[in-house]
Design a protein around this nucleic acid. Structure first.
Ligand code: MN
Ligand code: MN
Ligand code: MN
Ligand code: MN
Lengths: 219, 219
DNA sequence: CTCTATTTTTAGATATGTCTAAAAATAATT
DNA sequence: AATTATTTTTAGACATATCTAAAAATAGAG
């Protein structure tokens, strides 16, 4: 069935919130994500429930149906493929792609996406290290951890970011940190959990606000 | 100033109609092109006039302002660049691109279009032979004629089509006619203006309905 | 030049998606 | 358990873009 751009943005928001929270998704949480008022969200939830994209019980929060999950994941697939296109082919940097991908993800054409996927050589991850769902909506989960959870003495590779705002990504660029960068934990300050890290042969200190937003994998 | 997707489609329609008619653009002509009722068009014309994108005098038809023309031409530039992308990079055939380009033309990002232009190696024409406006809104005009205007005995190259519907383009594909195909006029039937043409060493007959929709250039 | 046909505009209605303000339900405190 | 605070929903309004039906203006015929 046909979904509008607005409905798609709600589905995606619900998907992302339920991924990070695990529980039922609240009206207020959606309102915050979408940047709309709770009353507007309630209206939309009724519409999505009518279309069998979510299960909605008044005052109890919502969950995606299988149909809704498929729809949400397909939008995310499109978003991330376009981000790869922008970075790999059109010289965008990873902090410039989000807003454009936010528009491109709503373009409707099966062939466009399958051809784009092939043209990009079937990428598995977007420029921020997020996995790209396959054409069946399956998502490759890797055993990454937050840098803040890393152990002293161990070595890691940066495999992703949580905050993909332009500000944060520019901070990483400034310190020459990107997907694939090697990070070794030299010390952890007990008081504020800031970390001394060896990155590109230099030692630098990162606050927990930073290390909470970087995904790494043990080498 | 900000233009909505709907406003952009109206601007493009007005541009195309005024190109082919030369005169003021009527409400009914727009209604037909947009596939909407005349009353809806009138509503939109007021809105476009308020935004100084058209000059509108009740009952007298409309014309694009310079600002409106720039906006229309930029949409057309985007449309045609995306068509080139779809054919050159994503294996679309020339009869499959229009509907997708119709959506992609509304994506808002200066950088996206300038980078796409460079990525495609600054194409001058789209897959249907239509010129791509440059970043300043200038359009390269070539001295092409309709095949129906061609002279007996002369040789031509196909440089474009007027009707770019899937049906017509598939007809051309079937007879192996495309941009660049050589066409020699063997005879013209007085009665119905059908033409005998030598194409790819074979002789074929085309009705005026066909020859009116093919642009050619003298060799 | 007058009457008719066509085109265009207005008036009023509908659908989507949003908002504010008020009411209802749920959660948290004392 | 009762009261207060927060969350969620409803009610009513507004903006965009569309429609049908009716009125007004223009164009065309005789
Ligand atoms: Mn993104
Ligand atoms: Mn991303
Ligand atoms: Mn369009
Ligand atoms: Mn075209």
């Amino acid at each position: 069935m046909f979904t509008t751009l607005t409905e798609e943005n709600y589905l995606k928001a619900i998907y992302h919130i339920s991924q990070s929270s695990g529980t039922d998704v609240s009206t207020n949480a959606i309102a915050k994500q979408i940047d709309a008022k709770a009353s507007s969200v309630t209206d939309m939830l009724k519409k999505l429930a009518d279309k069998n994209l979510i299960t909605y019980i008044k005052y109890k929060g919502v969950n995606l149906t299988e149909k809704g999950r498929q729809a949400a994941v397909y939008i995310i697939r499109k978003h991330r493929l376009w981000e790869v296109f922008l970075v790999d082919k059109l010289n965008f940097s990873w902090d410039e792609v989000h807003d454009v991908a936010e528009q491109l993800e709503h373009i409707k054409s099966q062939k466009l996406i399958s051809e784009l996927d092939a043209f990009l050589d079937f990428p598995t991850h977007d420029p921020h290290g997020d996995p790209i769902p396959d054409e069946n909506g399956q998502i490759q989960r890797t055993n990454k951890i937050m840098l803040s959870q890393a152990q002293i003495g161990n070595s890691y590779t940066c495999v992703g970011v949580i905050d993909s705002s332009s500000e944060f990504l520019k901070y990483l660029d400034k310190h020459q940190i990107g997907i694939g960068t090697q990070i070794q934990v030299e010390a952890i300050e007990e008081f504020d959990h800031s970390m001394s890290l060896k990155i590109n042969t230099k030692i630098m200190v990162m606050s927990k606000a930073i290390t909470n937003n970087i995904y790494v994998k043990s080498i």
